[in-house]
Design a protein around this nucleic acid. Structure first.
Length: 540
RNA sequence: GCCCCUGUAGCUCAGCGGAUAGAGCAGCUGCCUUCUAAGCAGUCGGUCGUAGGUUCGAGUCCUACCGGGGGCGCCA
């Protein structure tokens, strides 16, 4: 158990013992937390216990804090404890306790950080799902990387994850694709709303089929999907499943799900079309399911697809990762989930805000149809897989990001990858040197590591242990960028330690302890990097 | 008009309701005969969009307003 969790248990049980009132009404105890103060003078850990219990106990917070402090001081885990400010408990932890955790971390490796949030539940993450009408652009790469990192994170906390790409291989855009290829083949102008770009010319040159737009479109789809698969592969992303929209339409599942809605009284007919009464399930208006020409709408297909995911395949939880331009679909889909009697908590739709590109400060407009999109391949080639992933993952998808292509191309320090990778590479170099010098590589004892009291050493040890809680939080909030935040901090702590605390030239006992700390740091860094799908570097 | 996201240092962005709001880049100043200087330290730089509210405590939660992005098809 992590130190913060131990302390929390300690504080709450002490409060419960000392104050009878809390045995009758333990609810306020849930407000008690253990924090890590920003300032060293406020201790290794701090608790708000006295502050949040003051009202229930009808006593001044500082008085409560004094009573708690007196009891907690007797625990072996606690080195010192102070009451500060309005009633905070500032706790200094016994060095051996910190050292014991760091040794456990090193011995257990990444298993040390594992938690069982998911309890083995099945989770499907749907992401990318870009129309197979052209190469992926930078915006696709953003959400692809997010979806992949989120999948890794969720798998780490014990969800059984399936990564799926929904292939929109039917409908109007496929006809447009076919029409565009045919137009270029005959030297005519690409139709309004058609696709352009070098890849269309290449497809047109290779196409030997008929003048049927559907045939031409269907012929091109697998070729384009291969391009997409290769690009994803270059980004280190392998989907577990590619699910065809056409297959679900051909299976009759769309008609079935509309029938299911109808049997629940949620379908009516008007002007020759079948409508889903989605407004009464929370949508802003009703939606057409089957057009008056007899075709089902995209939404109807999408509902059938989600029915397939949640009911037919029965995933416990489904997370859709969409661009913010799909926002309009969310209310309709959730309405359908409710109308079908499915627990709406089983579907989460994460909307990634748009990514805008700047080139030397000037906005770059991009559009797949106009052929002016910035290809994802280009970005990966310029930056490399790891730098691309880390650049993308360093900020939240809730915010519209801007990247400057000129800066990205320069591989400047805008990208945190160098700072983080350097820390890992430095440790690798340290270990190589140690082996070369014939240094004893045994693991330090808890006592030896506990005697490392340099502020740099203590700060590093404490930060290493934070990774566990950070992973939990990142998974709960579906926010892999929090892992990058931890990595930056841990790298910073390591660089500081490395600068101020010589390892190999230290006396043997201290050398072993510091080497153990460095190796534990490497384990933690590698664990975090692996969650992001970024390879740790042995040297730079 | 309605819905979603967002507004934090010159720039790009972090920041569970906790104490004195951070990092990287850019600027300035120190530190390599010493385990990788892609590093470390210092410095400059902030009315956390505005105004109310909830709270012992608000950058964080609520409301309104202002600014930015996206969405509101018998397209997909």
């Amino acid at each position: 158990m992590a130190i913060a969790d131990r302390l929390l248990a300690l504080v709450t049980s002490a409060a419960e013992e000392l104050f009878e009132q809390l045995r009758i009404d333990p609810a306020p105890l849930s407000m008690v937390s253990i924090d890590e103060p920003a300032v060293a003078q406020h201790g290794d850990y701090a608790s708000n216990a006295a502050l949040v219990l003051a009202k229930t106990l009808a006593q001044p917070p500082r008085h409560i804090a004094e009573i708690l402090a007196q009891r907690l001081r007797q625990d072996v885990l606690v080195d010192a404890i102070e009451v500060a400010g309005p009633g905070f408990l500032n706790i200094w932890i016994a060095p051996w306790a910190l050292a014991r955790e760091v040794i456990a971390l090193f011995n257990d490796g990444e298993e040390y950080f594992r938690t069982d949030l998911g309890r083995g539940a099945t989770l499907q993450v749907e992401f990318v799902s870009a129309n197979p009408t052209g190469p992926l652009h930078v915006g696709n790469g953003w959400l692809a990387t997010y979806g992949d990192a989120l999948s890794r994170l969720m798998a780490f906390v014990n969800y059984r994850v399936t990564k799926e790409y929904y292939v929109n291989d039917t409908g109007g855009q496929i006809r447009q694709l076919g029409a565009s290829i045919l137009a270029v083949r005959t030297g005519a102008q690409v139709p309004e709303g058609g696709y352009q770009g070098a890849y269309i010319s290449e497809l047109a040159a290779r196409y030997e089929g008929s003048d049927d737009v559907v045939e031409a479109g269907n012929w091109a789809v697998p070729i384009i999907l291969d391009l997409i698969r290769t690009t994803l592969d270059d980004l280190g992303i392998q989907m577990d499943s590619w699910f065809s929209q056409a297959s679900i339409e051909e299976s009759g599942a769309v008609a079935d799900v509309v029938g299911e809605l109808a049997s629940r009284g949620a379908i009516y007919e008007r002007e020759g079309a079948l409508w889903f009464a989605s407004e009464s399930f929370g949508d802003s208006r009703d939606r057409v399911m089957r057009k008056s020409n007899g075709d089902f709408t995209y939404l109807a297909g999408d509902i059938a697809y989600h029915y397939n995911k949640l009911v037919v395949r029965g995933f416990s939880l489904v997370i859709d990762v969409f661009g913010a331009d799909h926002h309009g679909q969310v209310a309709s889909m959730m309405a359908a989930i409710r109308a079908l009697g499915i627990d709406e908590g089983r579907l989460e739709i994460k909307l990634g805000q748009m990514v805008s590109l700047l080139d030397n400060g000037q906005a770059v407009k991009f559009s797949k149809r106009a052929g002016t999109a910035i290809p994802l391949d280009w970005l990966i080639e310029e930056l490399g897989r790891d730098a691309t992933r880390l650049l993308i993952l360093s900020s939240s998808i809730d915010r519209a990001s801007q990247i400057d292509l000129a800066q990205a191309k320069a591989q400047s320090m805008e990208n945190p990858v160098f700072y983080i990778q350097y820390a890992h590479a430095r440790i690798s170099a340290l270990l190589r040197n140690a082996v070369h010098q014939g240094v004893d590589m045994e693991v330090a004892s808890i006592e030896a590591l506990a005697s490392c009291r340099h502020p740099r050493e203590v700060a590093l040890m404490k930060n290493l242990l934070r990774l566990g809680p950070v992973i939990v939080r990142a998974a709960e909030e579906r926010a892999p960028h929090k892992i990058v935040g931890w990595l930056m901090g841990a790298a910073s702590d390591f660089h500081g330690f490395y600068h101020d605390c010589p390892v190999l030239s230290a006396p043997p006992a201290e050398r072993t302890a510091r080497l153990t700390l460095a190796r534990a740091t490497q384990v933690a860094l590698a664990t975090a990097l692996d969650l992001l799908g970024v390879a740790p570097l042995e040297e730079m």
